Amino acid sequence: MRPQLQFPLMLVALVGFMAALALLFILVQVGLVTLAFAKLGLSPAQGFALLFATLLGSGVNIPVVRTGLLVRRPVLRGFTSFGQLRMAAETELVPQTIAVNLGGCVIPCLLCLSLVSRMGAPAGLLLATGAVTGLCYALARPLPGRGIAVPVLLPPLATALAALLLAPPELTAPVAYVAGTLGTLVGADLLHLATPRTRRALDAPVLSIGGAGTFDGIFITGIVAVLLA
Rank of each mutant, 00 (worst) to 15 (best):
M1K: 05
M1Q: 05
R2G: 02
Q4K: 07
P8Y: 11
L9H: 08
M10L: 15
V12C: 12
V15M: 07
A20E: 02
L23D: 03
I26S: 04
L27N: 04
V30W: 14
G31D: 10
L32P: 10
L32T: 04
L32R: 13
L32G: 15
A36D: 11
L42D: 13
A45G: 08
L50V: 12
F52C: 14
A53G: 12
A53S: 11
G57H: 05
S58L: 02
V64R: 00
V64P: 00
V65G: 01
R66I: 00
F79Y: 14
T80A: 11
T80Q: 14
A88M: 14
L93D: 15
L93H: 13
Q96A: 02
T97I: 14
T97H: 06
I98A: 01
G103Y: 02
C105M: 06
I107Q: 06
L111C: 10
V116C: 02
M119A: 01
P122K: 01
L125Y: 09
L125I: 03
L125K: 09
L126R: 04
L127Q: 07
T129W: 12
T133Y: 03
L135H: 00
A138H: 07
L139T: 09
A140L: 10
A140I: 09
G145D: 09
R146M: 13
P151V: 09
L153Q: 06
P155G: 05
L157H: 11
A158D: 14
T159Q: 15
L164K: 15
P169D: 13
E170H: 15
L171T: 15
P174Y: 15
P174A: 12
V178D: 09
A179H: 13
A179K: 08
A179R: 08
T181D: 05
L185F: 02
V186G: 00
A188C: 04
L191E: 02
R197Y: 11
R197S: 13
T198M: 05
R200T: 00
L202H: 00
P205L: 01
G211Q: 04
G213L: 04
F215K: 05
I220D: 01
G222V: 02
A225Y: 06
